[in-house]
Structures are given as structure tokens and as C-alpha cells.
Design a protein around this nucleic acid. Structure first.
Length: 628
RNA sequence: GGGCGCGUGGCGCAAUGGCAGCGCAGUUGACUUUUAAUCAAUUGGUUGCAGGUUCGAGUCCUGCCGCGCUCACCA
């Protein structure tokens, strides 16, 4: 239960005073006529169209408005005051003159019964103040929602060139994430990020719809998980007595739909992976996947390039974006190279010359490139995770498609299909051991993954088995073999190309953010340790639920290193002292609270001094019962 | 999970082991064109939690909690 701070108590008192004056603090209806930005635009237009008459006076049309918003700046003065209010569209100044709004309302402003952070509604004609700022010359002002907790203080100074300097910025990352509402309320640029996020997703939908793809929704709760290599979250359906998994990808469900007769489907939704978090990983994240029949991965590459360029244009106005100071051009065509070519180009060797894990490790080691590499890794993993992941990925700033992945890393991708079988032994081995898969990288970050999808059920079954054999020992739970998926494929699946991409990373790119947490409204954080205030609140809640009106408090007795719990209750008149307790140990306070429900015998106050910490809970429980 | 760093009034930050301070916000008063308004006075902190060393701990040590960065993990 809420324990008001000093600042909050002050505001509560103001709220009571306002109520005593007969004001409604939270009215149900307001009468806004214009968004703030629209009001300003109307005024500027009227001003521009104004005629200059014979006396040299401007005859601009009078723009009467009623605007509403949160007070973000308040400058109360003796007889004339100023406030800035803000709605989603923008900010406008209120010009508040005692003559115009009347003594009674003016007093509310002058003595700050209406505070910064409150929502108000103001009516009057638009005007310019002497310094030229467009303002509402308020004839009326009305409180429409009282803020009892003040927002973090952020002051802004607008420079002559329009830039805004902030003072006392709200920037503690933990507080910002835990109280995102306060972050958003105070930091306009944070609000802007999520506007762009919404636009990104809308642009992606528009694009894919335009490509003739059908948007579908597939299960989040799945009896089997698959389509990616990640540990899932497990949950349980009570009535069905069945364990279920939160999906780690949409892949297998979407491809079943191609069997069903749709030519192209896509889904934008949440995936959940029970893995570590990082600047580019969150436990739940937004995924985009599409599958389109009758194209291969080259076709997917074309769509990818156009989709990213289109989305960037819709969101930022240009397919050229700036990310962390680097100019990045998303317009097609992008550079397309195989992993093999990229390694040749950037690292100067052909990994096909080292065709086993052992040989490759030995070579990389001799080049000094083996740091962090596990010599027992498979050949394919060394190439993808180590060579690409550790030595190439971070260099790929401009959009780059890296294609043709080792087969054992790509269980849902078709083998490379060349026009002719190469005569050369090495090239033949290359084609046999690689698949038509590509990943693409922008700003040194993996942005997505795509294949020419495997549609041969016999081959697919083999791959499932192969994966199990290769990775069984290290997988905590081996990726399950999905028999139903194989059955679907046996009915006949059209040749198709598939695509998957993390939408959050795309938003990072388009909003110039370096952490995925800054593009998620509510990034996952560990639960907070209970604070004193929380626990007191819990006690009070218990009290309220049980119908007692009393206050619980405790303080440290410094000399004895003891804590005292004072439980004064009106009509009971008991002041109880628990000694030797806990000394602030929250865990023990919690036990104490839990014990209120216990069935325990009565102890006297004197006895409390004699007993150890653990028994304090017992005593507290008895005290509680004595009140009942 | 490993390494490094951080945690001090509502917010932003100080404090060679020696009286816990400053700015903003708040409170009271003044001010009829302010805009980080200004001026005067003023309230508010058991320094994340628990131990330890010390005459003395915000500061040093140990453990825990939380956050950030980084490494590992993420076919």
C-alpha cells in the first residue's frame, strides 16, 4: 500500500484543499476543441493571412481554442503567470492574467494548488506574448487531473537555433525502465522512439501486404517448439494436464500453411527465448517471418533489400540512415557474398582447404585467430560462429548479405544447387556441404536469416536426426523431432523461400539506439528487492483488508542495535515493542508478516526481550490476534 | 555464469577514513510579458541491504540485492 513521501503529502494536502473548494480533481468530461499542434497551426495560418488595414493594424482572425494537457512548466507571478502545457502533439504556453481568469482561479495558480505535472484544460484566444511566443490567452483554466506524485524534474532551455538543452535530466536507466511511464512523460525523445517503432511495424505490414502476402497468426503456446536453436520457456495447461512451450519461432507453423495452399504468408509477433540478455537480446522479442512459394533465397534477398529500403523511407524519410555516426545506405542492391568469399576477402584464406574441424582449428590457431574457439566444435560451427561471428560480422557496417552456410548449421535449408556439377573435387565437396541460406548484417549486427526452404520430407527427417546426433550432448533439451511437421511436408510443400528477422533490431537501426532495451517499452528486468516502504505497505494492506485502522512503524534503537515495532491502534491503545529483532532484515520482516496468518500462542512483552530473532514473528502474530 | 564499474534527499551530482554538502524541484513571501524567470527565507538524507575492520566508515574489507558495460551462451 502506498506510503506517501513528503512531496506527495504536500500534494495530497493541496488536493484536499482543492476539494474543499468544491473543485472536482478528476472530472469525467473535458471539452478540448483542438490538439495543441493544431491550435498553433491554425493561429499561424490566420496570422499569415491577416490583412494590414489602413491604420496599419493587423486584422488576424481570432482563433478561439480549448486545449488540454500536462503542465510541464509553471512560472507563477503576482498578477500574471505563465505555464507550458503539453499533449502528444506538442507544447503551448498559457498566458494567465488575473484580470482574465478571475481572482479565485488565479489564486490556484499563484499558490501552486495547481502544480507542474497536473493536467489542465484552458480556453481562450490564441495570441503572441510580448516576446513573440505563441500562447493561449486563457480566459478559463480548469484542473482535469491532479498529479499526486511529482515527475522527475527536467528543465529545458530552448536555444536561439531551436536546439533544446536539458537540465536535471531523468537518466537513471534502472528507474527509467522500471517506471517507463515517467520516462515517457518526461523524455520526449523516448516517446519519439516508440512512435517510430509503431511506424516501422506498420511499414513492414504495408510492404508485405503489397507483396501479396497473407498475414496470419499461429500459436504462441506450442506442444513442441522448433524452428530455431534456443531453449524455450515451459508452462503448463492445468485442465489438459499438458506441458506447453512458449514459441521460439513461427517457422514450422507458417510453412505448414504453404502445404495448405497459401502462396505466401507472414507473421509479426512475439517469440520467447530462455537465453541470456544483451544489448541485442531480450527474453521476449518481436519477430517477423515470411514464407513465399515459388521463389528461392535469391528471391528472398530481393524482397529483403526492398523491404528494408521501403521501411527506412517510411520511418525516417530516406533509405539512407545514420547509425552511431555512420552513414548507411539501405537502397538495393546490397553486397552479396558467400561466407567463403567473405573469409577469403577479409581474412585471406579458403576454409575449404581445411575441410575438418581439426584442420580448421589448427590453421586458425596458427594464424592467431583461434582465441575463444573451442577445438571440439563442429566444422560448421567454427565457420559460422567463430569465423563469421567473431571475425567478420562486426566489420559489416553497410548492408551485406552473407550466403551459403555449412549444412550442419542449417537444418531447414536446401543444399546448394549449382547449374552443373563441378568437376573439381574441392568445389564438389563445397556444394555438397553447404546450403542455400543467408544472413544479412547492418551496422555490424545480424539482422535476419533466410533460406531456400527444405521441402523434401525425407531429407528433412534426415536433418532432424543429424541435428540430434551432432548437438545432443550439448543441448539441455534436444530439439524435438516434429512428426506432424514432417507429415505436413509429405502431403507436398511447394518450393519456397523463407525469411526471419528481429524487428527490435530493425527499430534500433532506424532510431539510432545501441540497446534493445531502449526500443522496448518494458524491457525485462529482475524483480526488485522489497524495500522497507514496500513491506510497510504490505502490513498496511493486510490491516486494511482485515478492517483495522492502524499504523505500523518501526525504528532502530541504536544503543541496543534493536528494532522496535510500534503498532499503535486506535481504540486498542496498544504500543507494542518487539526487541532484539531483525535489525532491519527484510527477509525476517517478511517472515514476520507471513506469520500473522499462523496459529501461535501468546507471549508477553517481557518475554520478547528474552527470545531470539526467529521468535519475533511468533510474538507479532499473537499481537495481531489480540487486536481481533 | 565470469570480469569491470555503479548504487548518497523527488531528479541531477559532491564529499584525502574525521560535522553528509550543492543545484534543480518542494515550502513561505514578493513580482501584470516570463520562458532553466528572478529575489529573500526555508523543509527534507539511519548514503541499496546485512555483517566486519577502526577511537571514528558514504569512503576500507566480506556477503547479498539491483542496474550498466563486457565476455561466455544464443545450430
Amino acid at each position: 500500500m502506498w506510503q506517501p513521501s513528503k512531496l506527495e503529502l504536500e500534494r495530497l494536502e493541496k488536493a484536499e484543499r482543492l476539494q474543499d473548494q468544491g473543485l472536482e480533481l478528476y472530472p469525467a468530461r473535458i471539452t478540448r476543441s483542438h490538439r495543441i499542434a493544431d491550435a498553433i497551426a491554425l493561429f499561424l495560418r490566420a496570422e499569415a493571412e491577416a490583412q494590414v488595414d489602413d491604420d496599419g493594424e493587423h486584422n488576424a482572425e481570432v482563433i478561439e481554442v480549448t486545449v488540454a494537457g500536462r503542465i510541464r512548466r509553471l512560472n507563477p507571478k503576482g498578477k500574471v503567470s505563465f505555464a507550458h502545457i503539453e499533449d502528444e502533439s506538442g507544447r503551448v504556453q498559457l498566458f494567465l492574467r488575473v484580470n482574465a481568469i478571475g481572482d479565485e482561479d488565479y489564486e490556484l495558480i499563484r499558490h501552486k494548488l495547481i502544480d507542474v505535472d497536473d493536467f489542465v484544460e484552458a480556453s481562450g484566444p490564441m495570441m503572441r506574448t510580448r516576446t513573440g511566443e505563441v500562447s493561449v490567452n486563457a480566459a478559463e483554466i480548469r484542473l482535469i487531473s491532479k498529479a499526486l506524485t511529482p515527475l522527475p524534474v527536467v528543465k529545458q532551455q530552448r536555444q536561439a537555433d531551436g536546439t533544446i538543452i536539458e537540465y536535471g535530466e531523468f537518466k537513471d536507466t534502472e528507474s527509467r525502465y522500471r517506471q517507463r511511464y515517467a520516462d515517457l512523460a518526461v523524455n520526449k525523445r523516448v516517446r519519439d522512439i516508440f512512435v517510430k517503432r509503431a511506424r516501422t511495424i506498420k511499414a513492414l505490414r504495408d510492404f508485405l501486404d503489397g507483396e501479396g502476402m497473407l498475414e496470419v497468426e499461429t500459436p504462441v503456446l506450442q506442444p513442441l517448439y522448433g524452428g530455431a536453436a534456443a531453449r524455450p520457456f515451459t508452462t503448463h495447461h492445468n485442465q489438459l494436464h499438458e506441458d506447453l512451450y512458449l514459441r521460439i519461432s513461427f517457422e514450422l507453423y507458417l510453412k505448414r500453411l504453404l502445404v495448405g495452399g497459401y502462396d505466401a504468408v507472414y507473421e509479426i509477433g512475439r517469440d520467447f527465448r530462455n537465453e541470456g540478455v544483451s544489448y541485442k537480446h531480450n527474453t521476449e522479442f518481436t519477430m517477423l517471418e515470411f514464407y513465399k512459394a515459388y521463389i528461392d533465397y535469391n528471391g528472398v534477398m530481393d524482397i529483403t533489400e526492398r523491404m528494408f529500403a521501403y521501411t527506412a523511407e517510411q520511418v525516417t524519410g530516406s533509405s539512407e540512415i545514420v547509425y552511431q555516426g555512420a552513414l548507411i545506405d539501405l537502397a538495393p542492391p546490397w553486397k552479396r557474398v558467400s561466407i567463403r568469399e567473405a573469409a577469403q576477402e577479409l581474412l585471406g584464406f579458403d576454409y575449404m582447404d581445411y575441410p575438418t574441424g581439426e584442420a580448421l582449428y589448427t590453421y586458425l590457431h596458427s594464424r592467431g585467430l583461434a582465441e575463444g574457439l573451442d577445438r571440439d566444435d563442429t566444422w560448421g560451427r567454427m565457420i559460422v560462429e567463430h569465423i563469421l561471428g567473431n571475425h567478420i560480422e562486426h566489420r559489416l557496417i553497410q548492408p551485406t548479405i552473407i550466403k551459403d552456410y555449412p549444412r550442419d548449421m542449417s537444418p531447414f535449408a536446401k543444399r546448394i544447387h549449382g547449374d552443373d556439377a563441378p568437376a573439381d573435387e574441392k568445389e564438389r565437396r563445397y556444394i555438397e556441404s553447404h546450403t542455400e541460406r543467408f544472413e544479412f548484417f547492418i551496422a555490424g549486427m545480424e539482422m535476419g536469416n533466410a533460406f531456400t526452404e527444405l521441402n523434401d520430407p525425407r531429407d528433412q527427417q534426415e536433418r532432424f536426426v543429424e541435428m540430434k546426433r551432432l548437438y545432443a550432448e550439448e543441448a539441455d533439451e534436444t530439439t524435438p523431432l516434429d512428426e506432424d511437421y514432417l507429415r505436413a511436408m509429405r502431403y507436398g510443400m511447394p518450393p519456397n523461400g523463407g525469411f526471419g528477422s528481429g524487428v527490435d533490431r530493425m527499430v534500433m537501426l532506424l532510431t539510432d539506439q545501441t540497446s534493445i532495451r531502449d526500443v522496448l517499452l518494458y524491457p525485462h528486468l529482475r524483480s526488485q528487492q522489497l524495500t522497507e516502504a514496500d513491506l510497510r505497505g504490505q502490513f498496511m494492506l493486510d490491516a486494511a483488508v482485515r478492517g483495522f485502522e492502524y499504523r505500523l512503524d518501526y525504528k532502530l534503537d541504536g544503543s541496543k542495535r534493536q528494532i522496535a515495532l510500534l503498532l499503535p491502534a486506535p481504540n486498542v491503545g496498544v504500543e507494542f515493542r518487539l526487541a532484539n529483532a531483525l535489525a532491519g532484515s527484510l527477509a525476517q520482516l517478511q517472515n514476520l508478516r507471513a506469520a500473522f496468518d499462523g496459529d501461535l500462542h501468546v507471549l508477553t512483552e517481557e518475554a520478547l526481550y528474552a527470545i531470539g530473532d526467529d521468535l519475533i514473528a511468533v510474538a507479532a502474530a499473537d499481537f495481531w490476534r489480540s487486536l481481533r
